[in-house]
Amino acid sequence: MRAPQRMSVSRLYSRKQSSVCGVVQSCAGRSSFSWTAVCKQRTLWLQGGGCLTRQQHAVPSPISARSASHTTVDPDEVRRFQSLAGKWWDEQGEFAALHAMNDLRVPFIRDNLLSVHTARHPGKPLAGLRILDVGCGGGLITEPLGRLGADVLGIDPVEDSIGTAKLHSSFDPDLQDRISYQACTLEELSSEEEGGSEEQGVAQFDAIVASEVVEHLADLETFAFCCSHVLKPGGSLFITTINKTNLSYAFGIVVAEQLLRIVPSGTHDWEKFISPEELERLLESNGFSVQSVEGMLYNPVSGAWSWTNSTAINYALHAVKVREDPQPDQTKESSSHADHSAADTHS
């Protein structure tokens, strides 16, 4: 199995910077930034003329159909995973493919984080990093990241899944001080974090992981916005999901669900799948820069995953939150320093 090769997304897709990126950055840099105020403004914009104008003049997007509820939670998805909450750690059961995916996604996260964070901790390479695992389920990827030394918070709206995750991690003393779980949504966590101190409030995570999650969400706009809200400037966002192609329908639904029964029937809705191009546009409009996209392929015979050049079915994406602009006092100080330097030169 080859190691994932970083692929420049600029060679794959054309980029388009959005003014929303500047708004997110400028708001995040102000001490008076209010999550509640931003949510109200965003809701009014979506309900008012801004939303109507976008619908009239913009190219139709599959994301817009999932952006009316302003919550990431789909009640049907919650009920579906509620019935599976006790099966997360059955490596031969409904989540066998997710267990096998750890062979790819854990190194993908680790290696990309180590390329950004140069500090080395032998045996615990991710020590000192705080990671948020969104839609953690039973903790299938939360635990491996904790064993690599990271401080990981796993969140999921299904309380029984969180109960399963807590119970399983309790048997490993090495994880007691490294991972924690909370039954909540991403937007609820974002609202809670606003009330904390400056050090422990908004923008406190070094990385966010959303693995096999976005294809189950009700509102991707809210998801991307909240990710930007709780992620530190320069922090990483890791997503694995399913492309929206004819192949993904054939293999992800017909073969996987109906023929081979790799996953329970009804697990996926093809209308919720999203292409790398569309996901990149969404993330860039919320202050992210996509660094790499890698194709993934599952072999139902061997039960193993491998990297592939094609993103037609599954893919992994790594994005980085654009760093904030310099603070006003820093800019003023730099300007003052430049003026003094110029005066010295003339004298």
Rank of each mutant, 00 (worst) to 15 (best):
S10G: 06
A343C: 11
V213Q: 10
A218E: 05
E192D: 06
N309K: 02
N243W: 08
D344C: 08
E143D: 05
Q56F: 09
L167A: 13
S336D: 13
Q92P: 00
V322Y: 02
A183W: 03
V214T: 14
N246H: 05
D219F: 04
Y13V: 08
G196Q: 11
R2P: 08
A312S: 09
S289C: 10
G137V: 01
G163Q: 02
R147T: 10
V134C: 10
I179A: 11
G234T: 11
S26E: 05
D156V: 01
S302V: 04
G252D: 05
I141L: 02
D151T: 09
P122I: 06
V301T: 04
P4Q: 07
L247C: 13
E324Q: 12
Q5V: 15
V293I: 09
I141C: 05
Q82W: 13
D174W: 07
G266S: 12
E192H: 15
V59Y: 03
L231W: 11
S228G: 14
P328S: 01
S334T: 15
L279C: 12
A85M: 10
S211I: 15
A343G: 11
G49I: 04
V214Y: 11
S190A: 14
R42H: 02
A338S: 09
S69F: 04
D325I: 01
K332S: 03
L145E: 03
R15C: 01
H57G: 01
Y181L: 14
K321R: 15
A97P: 00
A96F: 03
V38C: 00
S197T: 15
V263Q: 08
D177Q: 09
K16H: 03
H70V: 02
L283Q: 04
C184S: 12
D206H: 15
G146I: 06
G303Y: 01
C226L: 15
T308K: 06
V209N: 13
Q176M: 05
F288Q: 14
Q291Y: 08
S275Y: 02
S248K: 14
F223N: 12
L148N: 05
L317W: 13
S115W: 05
S211N: 14
W45D: 01
D151S: 07
V213D: 14
L148I: 09
S310I: 00
E277L: 10
L12D: 02
T43Y: 00
D219L: 08
T118Y: 07
S61V: 13
D103C: 00
E193I: 10
W89R: 04
R261L: 14
N286W: 00
S10K: 02
H117C: 12
R42S: 09
L104N: 04
S228Q: 13
H168P: 05
S14C: 08
E188D: 09
A183I: 08
A218R: 12
K272D: 05
V9N: 01
S306Q: 07
C21D: 11
F251I: 14
L46Y: 11
L279M: 07
Q204P: 13
I179T: 09
H121Y: 15
E294H: 02
G163I: 04
W45N: 06
C226N: 13
Q92F: 06
G22D: 01
I313L: 15
E188K: 08
K16C: 03
T222K: 15
I63G: 00
E91W: 06
